[in-house]
Every structure is written in structure tokens, then in C-alpha cells.
Design a protein around this nucleic acid. Structure first.
Lengths: 210, 210
DNA sequence: CACATTAAGTCAAACGACCGATTAAGTCAA
DNA sequence: TTGACTTAATCGGTCGTTTGACTTAATGTG
């Protein structure tokens, strides 16, 4: 008999892949159990139901581990360092097998953000909210504001939006400008440019309020 | 008996709504025919099958009508005017009933871009491509370049990404910063800021190459 | 003009396939 | 012996699609 945890972990990994690829509703328990090479009923044995598997996938400790921006102390880093961490959180690099799983995890999050399954409630906006609040905090520091206003709010989304072009719009980028994804040092160059753009927007906003 | 075209048009409109809300695969022919108040078999009578209805929805003449950026002559407008048209194309205003249908249409496109159904092939990247090429053309004009390079490519996606924060990320914006969507003159202010951000990025890029 | 025929449109019912979930039975290490 | 794990089979529900029957409008004919 195989390791008992083996089947459970294989279901979680297969679940992550299938849910990330097609979303909760289009994912089938048969496809997940096929990929995991585990009997269909095992999903119900370990997770009660399909929704339970979905929640368990989200509870995997990827978010914690990859959230480099969460671990940054806003008061003691440069703007560039903070922005770099922010975009590394949004767009983790992909090289090792674990990083591939991390990317699936982020893809799953992006999908749930853009098109909520209804299984998690608003828990996922809560996933973004801490880093979004922290980004606004950073912008307030840079702009000399006590608290955020609508300009800070929209600037925060503009900064996030530039990164999400490679999350939600990744397929379009791959079709229209594949070099941005697959070129030499593409990840590094992409990150540098994103950080540069964000700094430029922040500098311009600062200029308008001086 | 009702107007024969009535049932067909009602199926197209109901199809647009349901496909925009949940995507091709999660949409059911029963839900669509329910909303259209038409018999289920009528979908097959008019469109052959579910995929045929989906294609017919995409063939509705909304894209043509709303593509203000496509009608702009790059050689004879200011940068601000061009950018304004670009973001008006990405984020059409929503006031009349027709504009509500247009927004559903854009939402449907955004969904198909981010998560292709497989029904349309690459036809949808083709929908974006002309405006994306035109945006690059505009950037080349502004930056004094004969043709686009990777910097122009990524700048184009950054500009698109800031807008798509209100398309793919709209739910997140509504949760975290509802004033950006629902505040007084929110659409106008949003558009102005997006155009301002885009100009700032372009000016900065021009500065780096002078 | 009346009637027959045809075409277009609509409907309820049913089909085979697939879904998530359940169950009884079997295996095996502790 | 027992609890954990695994399995094949099965269930009721829903899916997209098909079909034969019915209704109504349009057309043809004497």
C-alpha cells in the first residue's frame, strides 16, 4: 500500500492544477482523480466533497511562503526595494518544480479574484487586501499623505494593473509579444521595467502635490 | 405567433448575458433559453448548437460600433486625445440600456481573452491585435522610433494593464475601493487619471532615450 | 374565395453522456 | 481485530442534443 498521505497530496496537487486551469465549476472530480491516479471516492474520504478539496487547495501554504511583500518593513526599505518585492509577489519567478506549483497557485488566485467560484466567499479579496493596504501605505509615505485618498486608490490599482497584465492578460501577451515572457532574462527585465514604471508614476504624483 | 426574429434576438441577448456572466462552459442552454423565454430546442433551430450561439453572440455588431480608438487617425490627433480614445474603447461608459449591453459584450471579450473557451480559436487575440498595434504605433511616434522594440512592447502592456484593472480586476476594485467605480464622476475622473498615468510613462520613456 | 399544401416556428419529451456523491466490500499494516 | 485506506458499482440530477408532434402563417390551386 502506498503512503496514506501520498493519495491525499496527489489529490491536492492534481486539484490545484485542474482548478487553476479551468476554475472550480468546470473542474470535474473525475478529471482530478484521474490526474492524481486515485479513486474518485477518495476525494470524499479526505475532503468531504468537491468544495472541501477546493478550500484545502487554497489552504496550502504557498501564499504565506511566496508573499515577500508581506515580509517587507515599509519603514526601512527604499521605494525601489518595496516595489520590487511587490511585483515579485504578483509575478513569482518560475524555474523549479515548486515554483511551477507556486505559479499554478497564483493562477488559481487570479482566477478566483477575476471570477469568484462562490465557494470561498470574500476570503480572496481578503488575500489581496493586506498587500493592497500596504501598497497604499507605501504610496502615502512617498506622497507625504496621512491617509489615502482617491488619487492614492487609483494609483495603487494602476500599479497593480501593470503587473496583472502578465496574470490575467498573460495569454494575450504570449500571443502578441512572446519575447516579454520567453525572451532571455525576460523575468528580470520585466520586473525592472515594472518597478521603473511604478516609480515614474509615483514621482509624477509627488510632483503634482508639491 | 410572435415575430420570428423575436425569439432569435432574445436568445442572442440572453446568451450574451449568460456567457458574459459565467463563460461558455458554465453557461447552460437551459439557463439561456429560460432567460430568453424560448424553448430549449430553438437554440438548435436557429444556431445549430451551443457553440453556434456563442459565435453568433460574438458576431453581434458591438465591437465595430464601440471601437472609438480604431477610428482615430494617429497622425492627426494629440497624444492625450489618442490615449483618451484608447481607454474609452477599453472601458466604455455605462448609462443607457445599449451601453449596458455593450458592457456585457466587453465583459464577454475580457473573459474570452483571459480564459479562452476554445470555441473561437485565436480570433479574439485578433480582436485586440489591431488596437494593440495601433497603440504601439502611437508609442513609436512619441518615442521617435521606426518600429517597436521590447521597451515599447512592455510599455504598451503596462498602459493596457492599467485599464484592465477595471476589467479583469473590477470585482477587486469594487470590494477594496468602491468609490473608484461608483463615486461622483467616477468614470470621468478614472479616465483622466488613466490618460495622465499613460502620458507620464511615455514622457519618462522619451526622457530615457533622448 | 375556400381549401389544400407547404414552410417556418415552437413545443414537450426523451436520449446518451457525464456529473457529484454514496455505499458496500475488500485489503493491509498495526 | 481494527482502523485507515482503497475500490468498483451505483444513484439521482443535469447536461447538450434530437425528435416527432403541433401551431400558425404563407402560398398555391381550382
Amino acid at each position: 500500500m502506498k503512503q496514506p498521505e501520498d493519495a491525499r497530496m496527489r489529490l491536492l496537487h492534481a486539484g490545484m492544477e485542474v482548478f487553476a486551469e479551468v476554475g472550480f465549476h468546470a473542474a470535474t472530480t473525475r478529471e482530478i482523480s484521474r490526474r492524481a491516479e486515485v479513486n474518485l471516492a477518495a476525494i470524499h474520504y479526505y475532503f468531504a466533497d468537491k468544495a472541501g478539496l477546493y478550500r484545502a487547495v487554497f489552504a496550502l501554504p504557498f501564499a504565506e511562503k511566496s508573499n515577500v511583500f508581506a515580509h517587507v518593513d515599509i519603514e526601512s526599505v527604499t521605494l525601489e526595494q518595496a516595489l520590487s518585492s511587490f511585483y515579485q509577489w504578483m509575478l513569482p519567478p518560475v524555474a523549479t518544480a515548486e515554483e511551477v506549483m507556486l505559479q499554478k497557485f497564483m493562477q488559481l488566485h487570479a482566477r478566483e479574484e477575476a471570477d469568484p467560484s462562490g465557494i470561498l466567499g470574500d476570503a480572496l479579496s481578503e488575500h489581496i487586501k493586506p498587500n493592497h493596504e500596504k501598497l497604499k501605505q507605501l504610496l502615502c509615505r512617498e506622497l507625504g499623505k496621512i491617509e489615502s485618498d482617491l488619487a492614492v486608490e487609483q494609483l495603487a490599482f494602476a500599479i497593480m494593473g501593470m503587473g496583472s497584465a502578465f496574470v490575467h492578460g498573460r495569454r494575450v501577451v504570449e500571443v502578441l509579444s512572446p519575447e516579454l515572457i520567453h525572451g532571455k532574462n525576460a523575468g528580470e527585465l520585466r520586473l525592472q521595467r515594472l518597478v521603473g514604471y511604478a516609480k515614474t508614476l509615483i514621482d509624477a504624483e509627488r510632483g503634482q502635490h508639491e
